[in-house]
Design a protein around this nucleic acid. Structure first.
Lengths: 235, 235
DNA sequence: AGGTGCTTTGCTGTCAGACACAAAGACTTT
DNA sequence: AAAGTCTTTGTGTCTGACAGCAAAGCACCT
């Protein structure tokens, strides 16, 4: 198995990584404008690589580029969320099917182990750790599926929603449902029952959508008055 | 329904469109290097917007950008094809489900009409027209599904395979199967039976993969000797 | 003769400065 | 106060420049 090409560094790639992280971590507020000049100052870089990085992020859907008006951090609307979630669901279900068909015993063992930790984090109410390991489990399943195109797309879409999922709190009843789903998916995986896994995965994502929907509703009504005014001011 | 934002023209966007077309039409040979200088000459453009266009195409997966080594037209490997096709299949099946749930009567009528034309083109053996209308039908179904994220991704993946599908001839027996699949999908659509549609769609794509696989096999064995030597020479 | 290391050459990655033009804001006029 | 004009800011593109990597060619050593 040859090493998948040492990731050579170029400035624009580095910038893509940095900006992506900043957006997903909420450091750059969704909807806010990001003038090239400010970013150039911030990173101490010229416009050339920066603009290239923005182009990339724009294709990835993290940034919105309006001609002559510059770049904004994408503000995912409710409608877009409603569109993306089913796609994530179907992709996850495919990943599950493929994983069921392909995984090796040790992969399954590792996943089961992580799942145990997941449940522990749920029991102790540690949202942070829960989300983290949840993510790792997902990644592992996609890895077991062995389909790079699939996981690339899944990751891309998930990144877009990251900022929303970020502000979605885990309320007890739904959280319990989510954990139950995970448990069911685990057993489906262990039975190599791809179809069952797929069904649960899609339902799971539907539940997730419900939660996000509620979170968005409260956010939207709260921000009803001061509409449109988002953005960080410079020093 | 507001017009989806008049597409403002910028040079790099224009370049993206042009290059994309050139790649998909096979004008730029897969695997061949494309030095910036040559493209600058070709389009009479400076490096700045051209490089930005290449970055976009690179994210879309049509071009492969190696640091310090420049851009190549992506050469989709057999493995990648095997990965992408199931994803296309599952996306199409989701599109079908959503379309079944959402389409209006007149949309269905239009699709049915196009399907009739499709069958005619099959009968008269007109591959060109067949492929074209086949594409339009797909687009219509995705439109009826009303999920932009879904169709965007589907289109992106399809573009990558375009160059391969391009060289895949339609041989009679499989072609007949394909038409039968289409007919079955039409009736599923008319019955608003999303699940049935989904099943057929995935099987349909599997068949398509079989055809491409055969086409690739013949190509690969034929190109076995003169390995690696692809690329257009300058004037 | 074959492999090893150096030089050359071409192209990429990044920078800096420039300017036209669009957009947004400030100001003036009626 | 509304409408039009001016100013300012920032983007889109061009030009020219240069360091640094890569591939190819060449000399050298064993």
């Amino acid at each position: 198995m040859r090493q998948p090409a040492i990731p050579r560094k170029t400035l624009h790639n580095e910038l893509v990584t940095l900006l992506r992280k900043m957006i997903m971590d909420g450091e750059l507020v969704p909807g806010s404008r990001i003038p090239e000049s400010r970013l150039c100052d911030l990173f101490g870089v010229s416009r050339t690589p920066l603009r290239e990085a923005l182009k990339v992020l724009s294709v990835e859907g993290l940034v919105c580029l309006l001609p002559n008006k510059g770049a904004r951090v994408v503000h995912v609307t409710r409608k877009e969320m409603e569109e993306i979630v089913p796609v994530l669901g179907i992709l996850a279900s495919l990943a599950g099917e493929l994983a069921c068909a392909n995984f090796k015993a040790d992969e399954l063992a590792r996943i089961r182990e992580m799942h145990t930790q997941l449940v522990e984090h749920y029991r102790s109410g540690n949202q942070q750790s829960y989300s983290e390991i949840n993510r790792v489990i997902h990644d592992s399943i996609f890895e077991a599926a062995g389909n790079k195109a699939l996981s690339d797309i899944y990751n891309m879409l998930q990144m877009r929603l990251r900022s929303i999922f970020f502000v979605t709190p885990k309320v007890p009843p739904q959280w319990a449902d989510a954990v139950a789903d995970h448990e069911a998916m685990m057993t489906a995986l262990e039975d190599r029952d791809g179809a069952r896994f797929a069904g649960i995965a899609r339902r799971h994502l539907r539940h997730k959508a419900d939660m996000v929907r509620i979170a968005l509703d409260t956010l939207e009504t709260r921000a009803d008055a001061k509409d449109g005014h988002v953005g960080a001011s410079a020093s």
